[in-house]
């Protein structure tokens, strides 16, 4: 008897376009393969998806809830709407909420020009914020030898936590508090420089989409992030 293959190709539509998905592919992965651009902020290719930022929310026909494309598996016969005027408004609102929650001052940020929040705001047409700014003072932790964590610029995407856990295996970063009081922490809330688990590898800094985790000594717009994860995944795929 020939071995029965469990590999199954699924067909679905995204914005009316017929697309194919292999098993375990998410809606986001399928969309990107087909050049359908769904905006994301917390998603990082190579890390597990968490659906934290909600920018990739899509409509699926027959489901009365919006679903995050980055963690929703493509299914046979799905009819996905990734772009609609209403989804666009929701995405703009998410960017506005992020801009009001902490202190994102592009003019004095080391990551200006290399910041995913800044470029998403432009891409989605957020040219001003209609909600009141909270102006809450967060701490900045400069205790690490090489890096600074400025929580005033954090968007709680948890990329730092995931890369530290899933790739580096140190799990120095975690999250404390709930809702608007959530904060990224190192170890049990100790200063980063006192962390016993941090290996100083800098992967968290590399994947931070904004100016929250940066190298010391950078001036405005000087902080560029190396794109090392695709290389790492490629090397792992080759068994090296």
């Amino acid at each position: 008897m020939p071995e029965i293959s469990h590999y199954q190709v699924k067909t679905l539509t995204i914005d009316g376009k017929e697309v194919c998905a292999s098993e375990h592919q998410t809606i986001l992965e399928v969309a990107r393969e087909n050049n359908i651009d769904i905006p994301t902020l917390c998603y990082f290719n190579g890390l597990n998806g968490v659906g934290a930022c909600r920018l990739c929310l899509v409509e699926v026909k027959g489901n009365n809830k919006l679903l995050p494309a980055c963690v929703t598996q493509a299914q046979e016969g799905m009819e996905v709407t990734a772009h609609s005027p209403q989804l666009h408004e929701y995405r703009k609102l998410i960017i506005e909420l992020l801009l009001t929650e902490r202190s994102h001052v592009c003019a004095v940020c080391v990551s200006s020009g290399h910041c995913e929040l800044q470029s998403l705001a432009q891409k989605l047409g957020v040219n001003h914020v209609t909600l009141p700014y909270l102006h809450e003072q967060c701490k900045a932790d400069g205790s690490h030898r090489h890096f600074v964590a400025d929580h005033n610029r954090c968007v709680l995407c948890t990329r730092c936590m995931r890369v530290c856990d899933e790739i580096e295996g140190a799990h120095t970063w975690d999250i404390t508090g709930r809702g608007i009081r959530s904060r990224m922490i190192t170890d049990m809330g100790e200063p980063w420089g006192d962390s016993e688990t941090c290996t100083n590898c800098g992967k968290c800094v590399s994947v931070c989409p904004v100016g929250a985790l940066v190298e010391k000594g950078k001036a405005v717009a000087e902080m560029t992030k190396p794109n090392f994860l695709p290389y790492l995944i490629q090397m792992r795929g080759k068994g090296q």
């Binding site: 592009c106 910041c115 040219n127």
Partner: peptide
Amino acid sequence: DLSTRSHFGN
């Protein structure tokens, strides 16, 4: 229409 021409910061 400034959507593609302007952004926050410098």
